[in-house]
Amino acid sequence: MSDEISTDGVERIGPHDLGGLPGGPVDRTEHDAAHWERQVDAMVMLMRRKGVMIDPAQLRRGIESLDPDVYEKLSYYERWAGSAALNAIEQGLVTQAELDARIESLRTGPR
C-alpha cells in the first residue's frame, strides 16, 4: 500500500491521509499504554504547556513530515516521539548529536 497514492481518483495529501481507503476489520482490543508511551504522551503535553509546541498543528506537522515509509512502520507514540524531537531540534532545545549520543548510551548502558 505504500506506493499507492490515490483511491478512486482522489489524491492523498500524504501517508497520514487515510480517509476513504479500503481496510480490514477494526481490531477493538483495548491496550493500556506502556510506561514509555505514557512518558512520551506527558512529555508532549509538557512541551505544549512550556511553550515549545503551543499549537497542536506543530505536533501534527512533525508527524506528517515523517518519510512515508517510516510513517507506516511506526506506532502511534513512536510518531509522537519523532515529531517532538523534530520540534525540539528546530527550536534549539537539543541537537541531533545530543539525541544520537543519548540513544546510544541508553541502548548499550546498564538496564
Binding site: 515549545v52 511506526l74 513512536e78 532545545l93 543519548r102 541502548r107
Partner: peptide, 17 residues
C-alpha cells in the same frame, strides 16, 4: 523511535524545560 522518546525526555529534563 522508542529510544528517541526516552532520550528526548531525559534531555529536556536535564536542560530544565
Amino acid at each position: 523511535y522508542e529510544w528517541l522518546g526516552v532520550a528526548l525526555n531525559e534531555l529536556l529534563m536535564e536542560k530544565g524545560l
